[in-house]
Amino acid sequence: MAIISQIFLLLGAVFYLLGGLGILRMPDTFDRIQAGTKATTLGAFSILLGVGFAQPGWLLKIVLIIIFIAISNPIGSSVIAKATYKSYEKPTNLKRDDIKELFGGEINE
């Protein structure tokens, strides 16, 4: 049990590190949001499960935190992405842009 817990903790830490690295290295905001959200979500799940395996009595609360993070983290990143799209210039290397028609000409220039 302790071994499984430590493996999960280590994996979670590695994913968190990758999230930080993704935030630092990706070239534009939307890619940063993607890397950050995915890596930190799995990192949080993994660390929480690791702690849950070490202390099985805490599992109920840990599952509650996992459910909350699974719902709230993607919503938060979607909201940031929408706000970013509305308020800043688009990346120049886009292959395709379907959202333009949704907001029309009412944003920025």
Binding site: A13, G20, T40, V51
Partner: peptide
């Protein structure tokens, strides 16, 4: 460079801090 990058990094920062708090509990 933009405010939105700062908001994204703050979000990531908060998620990592949650992991840290849970580890401290352990």
């Amino acid at each position: 460079p933009q405010l939105s990058d700062r908001v994204v990094s703050l979000d990531t920062f908060n998620m990592i801090v949650i992991g840290l708090i849970v580890l401290i509990a352990l």
